[in-house]
């Protein structure tokens, strides 16, 4: 049981690699954070992992079988993708939106059943937004919308959950709320990959981290080991410093020169 990428490369324009030779292994029960500057290939990697894009070189193995050999519905039963924002053209209710996550379990001409409805309720309870289930998604706050999409990913009942910047555009409380939900889900046996711009999210909520620069792996491993001010400086081009308490590093922050 694992989601494995082996030396994968992807180019949007032939010859210009957005991703080159990246490898990773995700086991059930862990949260892996993808870090890297804007344009370093995080989202591309995520989209390759969920089967929306096919790498031109290397392969992705889902529980030992090549991902590209799986029919779309089978793949969707095993990997759920949670985009940053819902992009529906119409004002669906929370319940309807989460029900869409049942799509891989519903036949081509079918419609969701009572059982699907129950799974939706369970997913809404799990992320704590059941009271919102009749609201239109477009009337919710950014954090609530994010939770709706996570609930949709959960309703998909896939063992692997891939999240695109789950902590972006959120206040600290909502960031904490969402990432705690994600961490708890992993504790229950899900394998989670999440992109983020915040190295501290990886420190606080992740078991592993993969740092990208220009589509290549810069560092990979346990967050406390793999991340250091030096490596972050290399990734982002600015200097960082560690804040810590007695137990070790707690956060990386940019070093700001104070004017005299």
């Amino acid at each position: 049981m694992s989601l494995v990428a082996r030396e994968i490369s992807y180019a949007y324009i032939p010859g210009q690699y957005a991703l080159s030779g990246v490898s990773l292994t995700l086991e059930p029960g862990e949260v892996l954070f993808l870090l890297g500057a804007n344009g370093s290939g995080k989202t591309t990697l995520l989209e390759c992992l969920c089967g929306v894009r096919f790498p031109q070189a290397g392969e992705i193995l889902l529980d030992g079988a090549p991902l590209s050999s799986l029919p779309p519905r089978e793949r969707a039963k095993r990997i759920a993708y949670v985009p940053q924002f819902p992009e529906a053209a119409f004002a669906y209710t929370v319940e309807e939106m989460v029900l869409f996550g049942r799509a891989p379990h519903v036949g081509p001409f079918g419609r969701p059943t009572k059982k699907d409805q129950e799974k939706v309720e369970k997913a809404l309870e799990l992320v704590g937004i059941y009271p919102l289930h009749k609201r239109a998604v477009n009337t919710l706050s950014g954090g609530e919308r994010r939770l709706v999409l996570i609930a949709r990913g959960l309703a998909q009942e896939a063992p692997y959950l891939l999240l695109d910047e789950p902590d972006a555009h959120l206040d600290p409380a909502n960031q904490h709320r969402i990432l705690s939900v994600v961490r708890d889900l992993a504790k229950q046996g899900l394998g989670v990959v999440a992109t983020t711009h915040n190295p501290n999210s990886a420190l606080l909520y992740g078991q592993r981290v993969l740092l990208l620069r220009s589509g290549k792996t810069l560092a990979q491993g346990e967050p406390f080991v793999a991340l250091s001010p030096e490596i972050l400086a290399e990734a982002y081009g600015i200097t960082f410093q560690i804040l810590g308490d007695g137990s070790g590093p707690r956060a990386f922050i940019p070093r700001v020169e104070r004017k005299a």
Partner: peptide, 11 residues
């Protein structure tokens, strides 16, 4: 009616 990537990811 979702984005193309979302619909694809939903199988």
């Amino acid at each position: 009616t979702l984005s193309e990537a979302e619909a694809q990811a939903l199988g």
